[in-house]
Simulated scan of single mutants.
Amino acid sequence: MAGLGEHITAMVRSHASGDDSAFYSVALQIAAREARQGHHVLADDIKKAVDASRSATPRSNVTKLAQPRGDLANLVEVSHPEVTLRNLVGPSELMERLIQVIAEQRQRKRLLDHGFDPTHRLLLEGPPGTGKTMTAAVLARELSLPMFTVRLDSLLSKYMGETAGKLRLVFDAVAQRRGIYLFDEFDALGADRSGNDVGEARRILNSFLVFLEQASPESIVIAATNHRAILDKALFRRFDMVLTYDLPDTTQARAVIKGRLGPLMKGMRWDIVDARTEGLSHADLVKAAEAAAKAVLMRGDTTIGGEDLVSALDSRRTASGG
């Protein structure tokens, strides 16, 4: 019965983490065990139940079972993004590196079998609104994984014991629940501190470094920051890849606007639009495009002109303090 007990424990753990593939795998192992013991009817029933469940459960729903529970529920927020790689606009070098991350994760078992970890620790740095959080969402969607956003307000504590314990909970989940784990506004945790709390801050950072170093390659841990300059230098060598995000150039700005407006935009006068996009982030461009579209539709038109977009871009620049 010891072997059966281990199988049941594994099934419970895989169910709790929302990992249906692991759950079915263990169920089939139990079926094989029963067959070896001569219980062929029971083994056949288990196999039929697995086959029926697999065919009845859409693949896209598998990771949606991975809801955080217990103390972890207070530390992370789970989402299931629908944004794809085609929706992300960036320089070719950045896109190529993201494609590489996706490819390595999709073939992670082959890499692990030969002693190589897939890229699974990413540091994203750059101005606000340039696509860092969106990148985490894209990776989640492309790899059919849930995205767990770590709530730093719940994670950080003035008591080191509590903070280290909470960090351990998150990284235990990284090993047990395959997903994308995003530490957004990471400088709140990873900043190079000075002052009266330097000792306490150093201990918190050292705990994070240890956990990051030991992080399971089954999940991807992402830290995103708007302030690379204030991060502790010890952090950079612990990440497998550092990706830098910048404000979009003219070509990228056009792509962002086109991607949001689609068929509403015909015969756009880019000669009057391009100069107005300079200095705006990807998020600013999306907001401006949406504002222009709503204004046009509400007045009864169906086509957005250059003047409509220029007006919205200027308003957005003013609102963002540009």
Score class of each variant (00 low, 15 high):
1 M>R: 14
2 A>V: 06
5 G>V: 03
5 G>C: 05
7 H>S: 03
11 M>C: 14
13 R>C: 10
18 G>K: 10
22 A>H: 07
26 V>D: 01
28 L>S: 05
30 I>N: 00
35 A>W: 00
37 Q>V: 00
37 Q>A: 00
39 H>I: 00
43 A>W: 00
49 A>K: 00
54 R>D: 07
54 R>F: 08
58 P>A: 08
59 R>E: 15
70 G>C: 13
73 A>N: 13
77 E>H: 12
77 E>I: 12
81 P>I: 09
83 V>P: 01
83 V>G: 02
87 N>L: 03
88 L>N: 06
91 P>L: 08
92 S>F: 07
97 R>W: 05
97 R>L: 14
99 I>L: 14
104 E>C: 10
105 Q>K: 07
107 Q>G: 15
115 G>P: 08
115 G>M: 08
118 P>E: 03
121 R>F: 05
125 E>P: 03
128 P>L: 10
138 V>P: 00
138 V>Q: 02
144 S>H: 14
149 T>M: 11
149 T>F: 05
150 V>W: 06
150 V>F: 11
158 K>D: 13
161 G>I: 01
162 E>H: 06
167 L>S: 01
167 L>R: 01
175 A>D: 12
177 R>E: 11
178 R>E: 11
209 L>E: 06
213 E>D: 15
222 I>T: 09
223 A>K: 07
226 N>W: 12
229 A>Q: 14
231 L>Y: 07
233 K>I: 11
233 K>C: 03
235 L>M: 14
238 R>E: 09
239 F>E: 10
242 V>H: 05
250 T>P: 04
252 Q>Y: 04
258 K>M: 12
262 G>S: 08
265 M>P: 02
269 R>T: 13
272 I>R: 11
278 E>V: 13
281 S>E: 04
285 L>Q: 02
289 A>K: 02
297 L>K: 15
301 D>E: 15
303 T>C: 13
307 E>Q: 14
314 D>F: 01
316 R>E: 15
321 G>R: 06
